[in-house]
Design a protein around this nucleic acid. Sequence first.
DNA 1: GTCAACAGAATTGTTGACAATTCGGCCCGG
DNA 2: CCGGGCCGAATTGTCAACAATTCTGTTGAC
Lengths: 232, 232
Amino acid sequence: MSAQPTAVMPSTSAATPRAEARPQDRVFQALRRDVLLGRLRPRERLVEEELAARFAVGRYVVRAALDELTRIGLVERRPNRGVVVSDYDPSQIEQLYEVRETLQRAAIARMLLPASRSLLDELTTINRTYAECLARGELDAVAEANAAFHRTLFGACGNPFLAAAIEQHWEKSALVHGYAIGVPALAARSHADHEAMIACLAEGDRAGLGELCSRHMQPSLEAVRKTARTRP
Amino acid sequence: MSAQPTAVMPSTSAATPRAEARPQDRVFQALRRDVLLGRLRPRERLVEEELAARFAVGRYVVRAALDELTRIGLVERRPNRGVVVSDYDPSQIEQLYEVRETLQRAAIARMLLPASRSLLDELTTINRTYAECLARGELDAVAEANAAFHRTLFGACGNPFLAAAIEQHWEKSALVHGYAIGVPALAARSHADHEAMIACLAEGDRAGLGELCSRHMQPSLEAVRKTARTRP
DNA sequence: GTCAACAGAATTGTTGACAATTCGGCCCGG
DNA sequence: CCGGGCCGAATTGTCAACAATTCTGTTGAC
């Protein structure tokens, strides 16, 4: 029980939302949200001393948190030059989504269907939270619920390494699709997609689930393509 | 050109074996080899101060190197309890290999075949180095050549994210298959497999390459299964 | 006017000392 | 003889100061 593959995605997917023991985790989570919700834009610079002052903490803690963010690909460190928010160009995003689709289809192929009642309940609960937070305009919580849905769904493939890889790539592309949460129409569509996925899980419709998950990624990918054409 | 997916596997796959500028890279590489070549065994503890003394460097540098190793899954850090070499149990290894196979098949499906002359030459050169170092008994260099072969091969899929994911999982399982280098028969077999792969690349035999790569992973997986039965 | 070299500022990298935590043994009451 | 709780050693976590590097704006020669 030593090397849990989940350890690759340490505090993020930590099932224990306990008292946020370590300060570096708090900084890590805060910065992670800032990036994922667009409060920090791609290519924006992250200066250690500023962050240390903002979080009332030593620079060492900030460095550790930034290393953690580097690990999951949300920021990038250039030696002696500091840390910037990652910025994937459109072609990289296409490649990233290609990998995500491959991994997701592999996961779906490995799920045992129809899904257990407890899994269905869990997903239903998460999706309800999603809708509620959306109605209240709590974007932070919406993003968290969205992440939880995907994490739970693909975690059900039974292979922790595969689940970790999916989550890892999901987080990277979250840089891109995160903004969609702010668009009501897209968010509603997302919620409906999730419900349809749950239905597929209940009925054991593996092929349908696969298609659904692939289609689910399309809107944000289309948005990227569009802005790429508009602003070369 | 900011966020290169290769950055996920920073110094390891760095194509520039330049002057080892940063001290933490030197420590990182040394420890990585120790783990991969079995000089450090699974579950073995890594004490920061000991390493700092051994490498004649500050504890901070050791910490940074250990974090780097954590990132690629070779060691694991338990908060306030230190770092130990990762230890995957047999079922986890099966899962790991399953993901590797999925990723490798996806990569092979995306390669454009027949391969370019420069790629074939590069792989041939690497495999020759492999044989030469093996004959001389330089296991460090053999492991490095082996890694280079796989990195180059799957790097040819054209999707840096996919290549990075493959490399990432390859390194994790290197904890397991690394020992095979020391067994002459297995090492020879490995060399022959590599040649066959190059032939498939040259002829454009995609299906053959896929099967070959999957079979290539089997011996070490079998070894794991065997030791698992012997020593439950 | 353009470009190279050069200071000075801003920022990151590293060190050593100190604080906090975990782990093992020891004592002691039951 | 055994289990709970204290104590101390070993180890990790954090801080504040210092060193090294990169960046920016300016100067001066051509």
